[in-house]
Amino acid sequence: MERLLGKPWIWSFAGAAVVFGVTIAFTGGRGAGGMLSATLSLAVFTVIVGVAQMFVITLGPGNVDLSLPANIGLASAIAMKVMAGDDAMVPVGIAAAIAGGVAIGLANYLLIRALRIPPIIATLSASFIIQSIDISYGRGLQIKPPPGFADLTSLQVGGVSVLAVVTLIFTIGAGVVLSRTIYGRSVLAIGQNPRAAWLAGVPVERIRCLTYILAGALGGLNGALLAGYFRGASIDIGNEYLLASIAVVVIGGTSVSGGRANVPGLWGAALFLVFLQVMLNTFGTDAGPRLVLTGLVIIAVIVAAGARRKFGGARRPATDRQALEAADAHSGTS
């Protein structure tokens, strides 16, 4: 139990369970099954962008990809246009959406590297450009997804979304990449201290480039899947993922200052966020208060998780704190 409580991801799952419990208590148990399977289907998309954002944030202070929503919007349009309603074109459409994402990731990195713009500004300004491209490219786009693709994204077996199972396997893969490959180790090293990583022989810039490309590709994939699930592309289909992608990373126990990632927590946090929406819908809350409440709950969870991490466990206070501060401060200035 003590070991379990020490895991940062347990809190996001606990939060999800609490919110689910409150909702069920409110409805008197009705619709619990349907609510579960709907939440699982929706959480998939949050998890995929969450993985993308997690890799980027783990690169260390300042690294974040704010172009994911625009990327998702454009990718949804690309996927629908390339598929053109034809089931045979589904793989090509997905590949095209991913290719678009890769291009966006590369562009982000080049802005950051060549023009030395901080990632937060670079990816935000990139997202305006992407949106403009999307507007002109997807003008009047009313193409429905191929029926087979649409069915696939919402296919359920025994109430469990097939896509969710595939995504679960994918996230396990992401966890393996992070801890068991040279690429993943390099990301974690850079996030802790980019200078020390460089001096330990890590190709820092190559890894950063790969990571922004990876995030872009996952954004593109997510755009294609969303267009299938919601039966069509839209420019603002990805909007909610700006906050959600960062929130799931943070709630899930990934260090915001980089160097420490948490894959299981993404699932807990994504389920938590979707359950929260479902709960507020069930309560019949209006859109305004709903946003306020969502914001407050996210803040509360992050504070609670942060307090737990700060005071939990026996550590070597002075040296630990000093070393971390020094590492933080250093990576912040370089």
């Binding site: 802790q192 001096l199 890590v202 250093h330």
Partner: peptide, 22 residues
């Protein structure tokens, strides 16, 4: 060592291994 060497989140083994991952 603080700014050029140590990875504070990592174990001794990971700190030694980082230069020899290949």
């Amino acid at each position: 060592r603080q700014s050029d060497g140590v990875f504070p989140f990592w174990s001794i083994a990971e700190n030694i291994g980082i230069r020899s991952l290949n």
